[in-house]
């Protein structure tokens, strides 16, 4: 038993345990925190495979940026303990069970079939790539050559989403502010809309 196996075992227990704890946590903030722990554990498994770059992204993007925003929303909206137990969407639960079963079936299929598809050579090829040009260069090469178009398209999509959210959530404090410059008499001061 190597040190690597020990680290993997600990990470495995932490990831699975915190994922379960997330599902069963009564407090929304606690659930979010357990999800953060699960994501950090996932980053450790990436590190174990020599995928440093992916591990860093996992922590910076998911644990560092996205979950902080989640936490922010939960904290500021003050999700009450009672709220968490009321089901706003009645169809949600059976649908979740159905989709969950589908996902589980998919995972089981890939675990049993995927090893045959990839083979031992697949894992070795990735390890070799991580060692020789390094994880950063290997990711950068495919990202900026073969997958450049999807990469750029995704970034544009994200920008569009951000701008869209800004426009949709823009709160207008006073109806009088809605007036457009054309409605005003000439020379009148144009009021800007407070956001």
């Amino acid at each position: 038993m190597t040190l690597e196996m020990v680290v993997f075992g600990v990470t495995f227990v932490v990831a699975l345990g915190s994922s379960l704890a997330m599902v069963f946590a009564r407090n929304a903030v606690h659930a979010a925190l357990f999800l953060v722990i699960a994501q950090v554990a996932l980053a450790v498994t990436f590190l174990l495979q020599g995928a440093y770059f992916v591990a860093a992204l996992q922590i910076i993007v998911y644990a560092g940026a996205i979950m902080v925003l989640f936490l922010f929303v939960i904290m500021l909206l003050g999700v009450d303990k009672r709220d968490a137990l009321i089901e706003p969407l009645p169809a949600q639960r059976p649908l979740a069970v159905g989709l969950g079963a589908l996902l589980a079936a998919e995972v089981i299929y890939i675990v049993f079939k995927g090893i045959d598809l990839v083979g031992d050579a697949g894992g070795e090829a990735i390890t070799a790539l991580n060692r020789d040009p390094g994880n950063v260069l290997a990711v950068a090469r495919v990202l900026f050559s073969r997958y450049l178009l999807p990469f750029e398209a995704t970034s544009i999509l994200l920008v569009v989403a951000v701008v869209g959210v800004m426009v949709l959530t823009r709160r207008i404090s006073d109806v009088a502010d809605l007036q457009t410059p054309e409605d005003l008499p000439a020379g009148a001061p144009v009021k800007e809309i407070a956001v």
């Binding site: 953060v36 440093y52 770059f53 591990a55 860093a56 992204l57 922590i59 910076i60 644990a63 560092g64 940026a65 902080v68 936490l71 390094g134 994880n135 950063v136």
Partner: peptide, 18 residues
């Protein structure tokens, strides 16, 4: 001496927000 040293520095900072 990680080959992602600078990213690690940023990652540690983003965990600090918690």
């Amino acid at each position: 001496d990680l080959n992602i040293g600078l990213l690690f520095f940023l990652a540690a900072g983003s965990i600090g927000v918690y």
